[in-house]
Design a protein around this nucleic acid. Structure first.
Length: 750
RNA sequence: UGGGGUAUCGCCAAGCGGUAAGGCACUAGUUUUUGGUACUGGUAUUCGGGGGUUCGAAUCCCUCUACCCCAUCCA
């Protein structure tokens, strides 16, 4: 299978390896306030998929903390979606509302720790007090309430003694936090609402930030996977669990980018807008990206699953092309769907030299699909073909029926056009044709060459069906709202003609209508009297595409984005002085000097190394690059190594005891353990090999083992030098002197 | 504007200092009684821009730019 793991699986594997968790538990935690869409499918596939991959478990949890928006019908829709996709949540569905009593107790605990307080500020004041992204907030005067008073008030809130909005429970964190979410987030609010499960028992309801982390913890979740917009909430998530001091192991939150697909909308608000405005027929309209919509349209769960695994998981906001989804359903149905003939836009053909009627046996699947199945197709003098399959004046490259060009009726005979009958307006109303009796499919001895075989139906035996052709709902790739809607997203054909076996035999519910696309018997509107088929997706159509590209003179704008360089902040006088000294007196290059001079911690560290070794440039390089990294990660003054050790390391490089490459390795070890570089070198035997006599045999071997790459290199692919050097370094555990190796390899391969 | 993220082909996406994976789309050809399928090839001298470190940088350092998220008693 695919060897590359996504970043979430990498995290999970590391956590398993390090023993952080013994078992992997994930959860899919929607709020039951809307119908699931394909974005939910992505989340389902990730959460259940990871649990399956690592022999863990995934809970289905309804995050039902807001009684005013939620309903049990959404719970059912969500359950249905998970089931349809083939996943199993185990014994029962979890509900955050089941944890309300526990959650309440945790809140009381927080109050007792003086980490939460009842705030009685109004809604507007709370907002005002929160400050803004650039200004600090200020704490409410109610934060000073005593623990006893808070306890009393909170209990009375629960009992329903106060009106909505009168009080809230807030965490006592930091009103000046850079992260706005940490400015004393609300934990509980009063709501005198009926909860669809908890009834009227509660007057206070927990907020997401309080309920979610604790629900995860209560369920023993190890990896709490959510979408990117919750990144800021992670601090609160951890604060609550940390402050409450819950037992280890605790769940950890990880975020991924939500799914976007072009030419459609995914947000609850926009979807609702479509449904309520009547632009679509309901939540299961086949044009909608809802699970119900895809289901109604005829998508298979397998195709959605493949799609989700094909698009991968990452942290970059992205917009997936619909064609990727369409490929998945086409690919799935190609292997599964029986082929039948249906005429969407009938044109009558009378075969003048045919008399009587016959029945043709035709397989449901083409030769390249290893499946059995046969149906009978009636054939007679009068048939219908698709209007698009005849042209009086065809363009170049047209393979179908023309006055000069014969065509095969799929599974039947070859015909050619004898006469075109037109109506008063000059539109073609009928074709008189002639067939070749010896050209019958499977018994063809006619030796007539045709360019294509087209679908047809018998005029008297064909059944009339309704076909609903769906196109993308929006004409804009990233639609904003109703204004971008595609007015032609639904085309209903009331009188399409189909071969009778489809209706009488009901061999399957999904068919390929040959040369048209895949269609699905509508699960709701289909009746025996009025059969209805939905178009799932069209076939790839390279002829149609070719026509378009001929008419459309391709014009690519091909504008390359221009990058504007912003202004660099000016150096302070002190920094400028330092910069001058570094460049002029010590001979550092501008960039390194700049880096050092602008960072006080770095320059201090650098100054310190200078006192122990007189090698300003080499020291500066390692401080500005390697030390800078450590300093960035650790921030504090908790570096495990000191300036003297850096000098020691640089001295070894200067004396060519170790290579730069090895030095990096040593540095890493040093940063981790604080060991002396000389000791690390001794322990691991890292002294570099510069003796050509030792290196040459290795090079010879590698050259002998990689004749292809040698040839490529000699052909001019100079990048491969790195490959050879890399191989030598690899076989010597990085100890070979790369400079020496480089020159030796170059010489050898000349 | 403070903080948190992200940037690799037209669209997704691997890659974590040593030859720029893969899928979709596109394209050329072979097979074909579906202009489908299948098969074979072609598609990034370059990783948002500019510098630096290194024998060697998509990967490390500096810097700039663009986009996304955060100031609901929603989740």
């Amino acid at each position: 299978m695919s060897k590359s793991k996504d970043f979430l699986r990498t995290i999970v594997e590391n956590d398993l390896k390090s023993g952080k968790y013994k078992e992997i538990v994930t959860r899919f935690p929607p709020e039951p306030n809307g119908f699931p869409h394909i974005g939910h499918a992505k989340s389902i596939v990730i959460n259940f998929g990871i649990a399956n991959d690592y022999q863990g478990h995934c809970n289905l949890r309804m995050d039902d903390t807001n009684p005013t928006t939620e309903d049990t019908k959404y719970v059912e829709a969500l359950k249905d979606a998970v089931e349809w996709l083939g996943f199993n949540w185990g014994k029962s569905v979890c509900f955050t509302s089941d944890y309300f009593p526990k959650l309440y107790d945790y809140a009381v605990e927080l109050i007792k720790m003086d980490k939460a307080y009842v705030d009685s500020l109004g809604e507007d004041e709370i907002r005002e007090y929160r400050g803004s992204v650039t200004e600090d907030g200020k704490r409410s005067k109610y934060a000073k309430r005593s623990i006893e008073e808070n306890l009393d008030l909170f209990e009375r809130m629960k009992k329903g003694e106060f009106a909505e909005g009168e009080h809230v429970l807030r965490a006592k964190i930091d009103m000046c936090a850079d992260n706005m979410k940490m400015r004393d987030p609300l934990l509980y609010r009063i709501k005198h609402a009926h909860h669809f499960r908890a009834g009227d028992e509660w007057s206070v309801y927990p907020m997401y930030d309080f309920a979610h982390c604790l629900s995860d913890y209560i369920e023993g979740v190890s990896h709490s996977i959510c979408t990117l917009e919750f990144e800021n909430n992670r601090d609160v998530y951890n604060w609550v669990l940390e402050t409450l001091g819950v037992e280890l192991p605790r769940p950890n939150q990880h975020e991924f980018a939500r799914l976007n697909i072009n030419y459609t909308v995914m947000s609850k608000r926009k979807l609702l807008e479509l449904v309520e405005s009547g632009q679509v027929s309901g939540w299961d309209d086949p044009r909608l990206p809802t699970i119900a919509g895809y289901k109604r349209r005829g998508y298979t769960p397998e195709s959605i699953l493949t799609f989700c695994s094909q698009i991968g998981v990452a942290k970059a906001n992205s917009m997936v092309d619909v064609s990727q989804l369409e490929f998945c359903i086409r690919d799935d149905l190609n292997k599964k769907a029986p082929r039948v003939m249906c005429i969407l836009d009938p044109l009558k053909i009378t075969i003048e030299n045919y008399e009587g009627r016959e029945t043709i046996n035709a397989p449901y699947y083409p030769d390249d699909i290893a499946k059995d199945g046969l149906r009978e197709i009636p054939f007679s003098k009068e048939i219908y073909i698709d209007r698009g399959d005849f042209m009086e004046q065809p363009p170049k490259g047209y393979y179908r029926l023309t006055p000069e060009q014969p065509v095969r009726l799929k599974h039947a005979y070859i015909i050619s056009c004898k006469e075109i009958i037109k109506d008063a307006n000059g539109n073609i109303s009928e074709i008189k044709a002639e067939y070749y009796p010896e050209s019958k499919s499977g018994f063809d001895t006619s030796d007539i060459k045709v360019k294509s075989a087209i679908q047809w139906v018998d005029a008297t035996q064909a059944k009339t069906i309704e076909v609903r052709l769906y196109d993308r709902l929006f004409k804009d790739e990233a639609p904003d709202g109703l204004k971008d809607i595609n007015p032609n997203s639904l085309q209903v054909i009331k009188n399409a003609l189909i071969e009778p076996a489809v209706i009488t035999e009901k061999f399957d519910e999904r068919f390929q209508f040959e040369r048209e696309g895949y269609f699905y018997a509508d699960p709701i509107d289909y009746t025996d009297e009025n059969p209805v088929f939905n178009k799932i997706v069209g076939l790839k159509d390279s002829w149609n595409k070719k026509k378009k590209t001929i008419s459309n003179t391709s014009n690519k704008p091909q504008t390359k984005k221009v990058q504007i360089d912003g202004e660099v902040v000016a150096m302070s006088n002190k920094q400028q002085a330092l910069f001058n000294r570094y460049t002029v007196n010590l001979g550092l290059n501008n960039e390194v000097a700049n880096t050092l001079a602008r960072d006080e911690k770095l320059s201090n560290f650098y100054e310190e190394t200078l006192t122990t070794l007189n090698s300003p440039v080499a020291l500066a390089n390692i401080v500005a690059n390697e030390v800078a990294r450590e300093l960035k990660q650790i921030q504090k003054d908790t570096l495990k190594f000191n300036a003297k050790q850096i000098s020691e390391l640089v001295k070894m490089i200067d004396n060519e005891i170790v290579s730069n490459k090895i030095a990096k390795q040593i540095f890493e070890q040093m940063a981790k353990t604080g060991e002396n570089p000389t000791k690390i070198v001794e322990d691991k035997g890292l002294i570099q090999i510069s003796d050509p006599a030792k290196i040459l045999p290795i090079i010879d071997e590698i050259i002998a083992n990689n004749p292809d790459n040698v040839a490529k290199f000699k052909a001019g692919n100079k990048k491969l030098l790195g490959f050879f050097v890399g191989q030598v370094l690899k076989t010597t555990d990085g100890k070979a002197n790369p400079k020496v190796v480089n020159s030796l390899v170059t010489k050898k391969l000349k």
